[in-house]
Simulated assay, not measured.
Amino acid sequence: MPTKKIFDYQNDEPIDLFVLIKTADVRVAKNGKQFIAFTFQDQSGQISGKYWDASDADVTKFTAGQVIHLQGKRELYQSNPQVKIYKLRETTADEPQSVEQFVPKAPVQVEEMQEEISQVLFEIKNPNWQRLVRHLLQKHQPEFFSYPAAKTNHHAFAGGLAYHTLSMLRLAKTIAAQYPQINDSLLFAGVLLHDLGKTLELSGPISTEYTVRGNLIGHIVLVDEEIVRACDTLKIDTNSEDMLLLRHVVLAHHGLLEYGSPVRPQVLEADVLHQIDELDASITMMTQSLKHAEPGHYTERMFAMDGRQFYRPEHDEALEE
């Protein structure tokens, strides 16, 4: 039985392994024949591949969320790795079928994240902010600690949403300690809520897709709606300055209108939250890509980082851990 994972294979090396179909998009080629654009996944990462001349039976047989056996060859296309598919087949009863073993997970246990986040809640001194955050975290707790932070790009693994939030909280605490003029309660509350709408925007940790409301509305507006509903439940005035500040910090966290925020940051804590979000996402994306690069070589081109490639030094002990 194959034991190697996706990123154990080198370019031009034959691939023979079990993988999870993360996505399976049916498309039509220039010759008019349909093909399936796959994204395959295991705990080492994901790789794309096209299954040409796919029959209707193939489309029905090979769907997202299914473990299959893949044979092919790893190759490069426009500096990015992909698999040239030779053969796909369904798994048999005595072969791997558990989806969970192919889904990457956060490097910190859920219980540890829950405990650390719970401690930060006590540091939110504004009583309305603390009540609101507690209410919403409790309402969305199962999804918050199991969902990824994105379909692709940063923290796209089970538990990634909570782990991204926790990483940002750690950065926020350090920055607030350095700059006492920052309202740490507002910053912490904003960090905890900023991506909570992704529990509504995304479908879950396995074969993650955008929900209809995720596509049509987006997580920033969805979480603001949740804040307003929670204020109504908790009898908190949504037009009070405290609530307007908190809502603004959350609404502005993408920084620019073209990146999805309905407003740009107009208070100190909103801009700090945006910068922390960008920093944590960028470091996570670069780290994941660098781990897949050979020492002394460059990463694949990263679309989310303006198509840039990053160099992995020949002696990089941190990435080897």
Results as ranks from 00 to 15, higher is better:
residue 167 S to H: 03
residue 103 V to F: 11
residue 160 G to I: 04
residue 157 F to N: 06
residue 153 N to R: 14
residue 132 L to W: 11
residue 161 L to Y: 05
residue 167 S to E: 03
residue 109 Q to M: 05
residue 156 A to F: 12
residue 155 H to C: 03
residue 160 G to D: 10
residue 103 V to A: 10
residue 168 M to H: 03
residue 99 V to T: 11
residue 121 L to T: 06
residue 145 F to G: 04
residue 148 P to I: 04
residue 161 L to E: 06
residue 151 K to Y: 06
residue 167 S to C: 10
residue 165 T to M: 11
residue 167 S to Q: 12
residue 139 K to P: 03
residue 167 S to K: 07
residue 143 E to G: 02
residue 128 N to P: 02
residue 163 Y to I: 00
residue 140 H to L: 08
residue 108 V to N: 01
residue 139 K to M: 02
residue 136 L to W: 01
residue 138 Q to F: 11
residue 108 V to W: 00
residue 148 P to R: 03
residue 122 F to D: 15
residue 130 Q to L: 06
residue 121 L to C: 05
residue 164 H to F: 03
residue 135 H to Y: 15
residue 154 H to M: 04
residue 104 P to E: 14
residue 115 E to I: 05
residue 127 P to F: 01
residue 125 K to E: 14
residue 151 K to W: 01
residue 168 M to T: 05
residue 112 E to F: 06
residue 118 S to L: 05
residue 143 E to N: 12
residue 113 M to P: 02
residue 122 F to A: 15
residue 105 K to H: 08
residue 118 S to F: 06
residue 145 F to H: 02
residue 141 Q to W: 01
residue 116 E to L: 12
residue 120 V to Y: 08
residue 159 G to M: 08
residue 158 A to S: 09
residue 132 L to K: 09
residue 141 Q to Y: 04
residue 152 T to K: 12
residue 138 Q to T: 15
residue 135 H to S: 14
residue 103 V to Q: 03
residue 123 E to G: 04
residue 135 H to I: 04
residue 103 V to I: 15
residue 149 A to N: 10
residue 125 K to F: 10
residue 152 T to W: 10
residue 151 K to E: 13
residue 153 N to E: 11
residue 147 Y to N: 08
residue 158 A to Q: 14
residue 163 Y to C: 00
residue 165 T to Y: 07
residue 161 L to H: 03
residue 111 E to P: 01
residue 117 I to R: 00
residue 146 S to Q: 10
residue 148 P to M: 03
residue 98 S to K: 13
residue 158 A to D: 00
residue 112 E to V: 12
residue 117 I to A: 01
residue 152 T to L: 13
residue 126 N to S: 09
residue 165 T to G: 04
residue 121 L to P: 11
residue 167 S to A: 14
residue 154 H to D: 11
residue 134 R to H: 11
residue 99 V to P: 04
residue 139 K to A: 06
residue 131 R to W: 10
residue 125 K to D: 13
residue 153 N to V: 10
residue 137 L to S: 02
residue 161 L to W: 08
residue 138 Q to I: 10
residue 168 M to L: 07
residue 128 N to Y: 13
residue 131 R to G: 06
residue 141 Q to T: 10
residue 128 N to C: 07
residue 134 R to N: 15
residue 107 P to T: 02
residue 137 L to K: 03
residue 113 M to Y: 02
residue 132 L to C: 08
residue 120 V to M: 05
residue 104 P to K: 12
residue 137 L to T: 00
residue 133 V to I: 05
residue 136 L to H: 03
residue 113 M to I: 07
residue 108 V to E: 13
residue 140 H to S: 08
